[in-house]
Nucleic acid binder design. Sequence first.
DNA 1: CTTTAAAAAACTGTCGACAGTCGGCAGTCG
DNA 2: CGACTGCCGACTGTCGACAGTTTTTTAAAG
Lengths: 227, 227
Amino acid sequence: MALSTAAPRAFIQQQNLVEQVADYLTQAIIQQHFLPGERLSEVQLSRDLGVSRAPVREAARLLESRGLLISKPRRGFFVRALNAVELEDVFDLRLCLERHAIQRLAERYTPEAQCALKQQVEVLCEAAEGNDGTRRIEEDLQFHRLMLHYAGNERLLRAFNDLSHELRLCITLITKTHEAPETIATSHFKLLDALDSGRPEACREAIDYHIGVARDFVVKGVGETGE
Amino acid sequence: MALSTAAPRAFIQQQNLVEQVADYLTQAIIQQHFLPGERLSEVQLSRDLGVSRAPVREAARLLESRGLLISKPRRGFFVRALNAVELEDVFDLRLCLERHAIQRLAERYTPEAQCALKQQVEVLCEAAEGNDGTRRIEEDLQFHRLMLHYAGNERLLRAFNDLSHELRLCITLITKTHEAPETIATSHFKLLDALDSGRPEACREAIDYHIGVARDFVVKGVGETGE
DNA sequence: CTTTAAAAAACTGTCGACAGTCGGCAGTCG
DNA sequence: CGACTGCCGACTGTCGACAGTTTTTTAAAG
């Protein structure tokens, strides 16, 4: 239920303007149409999107709460620019959440969860072969959302979803480089193996390794492309 | 830095209406002036507060992102009502965050942090003697915020702050009962002792115990007062 | 007296407009 | 030639209003 962040609309174009604007802004930001630190003009956005400023303002507040924008009073909204230490903090929090989640999941690992996760890794691997970087990221995030979901704490999942917007922000910094498909595959299969083993230490090791790899990848990428 | 919620303005009473309304709503909710599940009318609120609906709407979106309100499209905003499992989830996430934080803190436990925490426990104990329930809660939260702060991950602190609004919501459910001052004192001193010992396992045990007590207290309180 | 349906009231979503404020630019003074 | 001051444009914060929808009230039928 709470899993479908990638909304199943498309058909019914009857969604709040606020959410539509929020989606547009989110996409525009993670696709670098707006650069980090750039200022967003309310009037120009409302002109471009053909809506009034009220929905734009409310959407901006939404993105602010998600950490994609920051507001300076009387100045407007700016695209969030993550520095090195904030980036470390994001991955440290991710580690915190996922360590907890995988422990909880190990305690209640059902065949259903096992099946769903395995299936999602397949999907992810398939996506990793392709060229669509956005889809690869989304399928990756979806795997982790599934993990959090089956851990049985919806609030934990929400915390991860909040964080995931910032994770996307991190990843946009390094769109140039590509993680090798086999790296992604093995990294996720290790998680499944650890869960299958049923040993909490193994799960912890696997998730530590997994997130460590992702963090190093981003940190390295940022170092190369130069902030 | 991120600790000073009470910003250095004070002179110029120039604060966004949005924030003023948000503060008002927050207070009104945790003081049970609006009951859980109750619907908030935008027009009535704007009438009562003497402002237009725009700031009210933006403030409501803010509180929604903090988990104090939920919005139903075309229906409006409702005060969040936590059920038993959501309540469990909140405390489980709190455990997740604080376990991680106290580990990080143990790795970098400076005399400055030690001093600040000790001082805050003193303040908390003093507050626990008094009758002001709200202040006791705020001083308690402030202690934990300090812990998270000195853990050195501002993003982790933000996650806790997000959660803290829901914690207040939990606690409002049980305003009737009071935790004994000595219980609060010993519970926090155990945390300090564990940190002083420098042993990670001791820290983990202490935080598990601490949050377990708080959770049981709330769960028990909710069970008694019904809902 | 209960149930259904239609009309009215109230409310949300959205819009355009006005006022106060901020940043930049030109003109002026030292 | 450089620093200060006042003006100008652009923008944010806030407001009142309109349209469509939901809820409530009212009325009629069974």
